[in-house]
Simulated assay, not measured.
Amino acid sequence: MYASSLPHAKRLRHGRVSEPGRVYLVTTVTRRRRPVFADLTLARLAIGELRACDAAGECETLAFVLMPDHLHWLLALRSANLSALVRRFKSSSARRINAAGVPGDCALWQPGFHDHALRREEDMAQIARYIVANPLRAGLAGSVRDYPHWDAVWLQPL
Rank of each mutant, 00 (worst) to 15 (best):
R33K: 15
R33G: 03
R34Y: 01
V36F: 05
A38I: 01
A38H: 07
D39G: 04
L42Y: 11
A43M: 07
R44I: 00
R44E: 14
R44M: 10
R44P: 02
L45F: 05
A46H: 04
I47P: 08
I47Y: 04
C53G: 12
A55E: 15
A55W: 02
A56I: 01
G57D: 11
E58F: 09
C59S: 13
C59L: 15
E60I: 08
E60M: 08
T61W: 06
T61L: 09
L62G: 12
L62K: 08
A63S: 14
A63W: 02
A63C: 04
A63N: 04
F64R: 04
V65Q: 07
M67N: 10
P68K: 08
P68E: 12
D69G: 12
D69N: 15
H70M: 07
L71T: 08
L71C: 10
H72W: 03
W73K: 07
L74S: 10
L74R: 07
A76W: 00
L77W: 02
L77Y: 04
R78W: 04
A80E: 11
N81C: 13
L82H: 03
A84V: 10
A84F: 02
L85F: 05
R87S: 14
R87D: 14
R88H: 12
R88Y: 02
F89P: 00
F89Y: 14
S91Y: 11
S92A: 13
S92Q: 15
A94G: 08
R95E: 12
R96Q: 14
I97P: 00
N98P: 01
A99F: 01
A100S: 11
A100V: 06
G101V: 05
G101F: 04
V102Y: 02
P103C: 04
D105P: 02
D105A: 12
A107N: 09
L108D: 05
L108V: 14
W109N: 06
W109I: 06
W109Q: 10
W109H: 09
Q110F: 03
P111G: 10
P111I: 03
P111W: 02
H114T: 11
D115A: 03
D115F: 03
H116W: 10
A117E: 07
R120N: 12
E121A: 11
D123S: 11
M124D: 00
M124R: 15
A125I: 02
I127M: 13
R129V: 03
I131R: 01
I131C: 05
V132H: 08
V132R: 13
A133C: 13
P135Q: 06
P135V: 05
P135D: 08
P135R: 05
L136G: 00
R137H: 14
R137M: 00
A138F: 06
G139I: 08
L140Y: 12
G142E: 13
G142I: 04
S143M: 09
R145T: 11
D146L: 08
D146Q: 14
D146K: 06
D146W: 03
D146E: 15
Y147V: 07
Y147D: 08
P148N: 09
W150I: 01
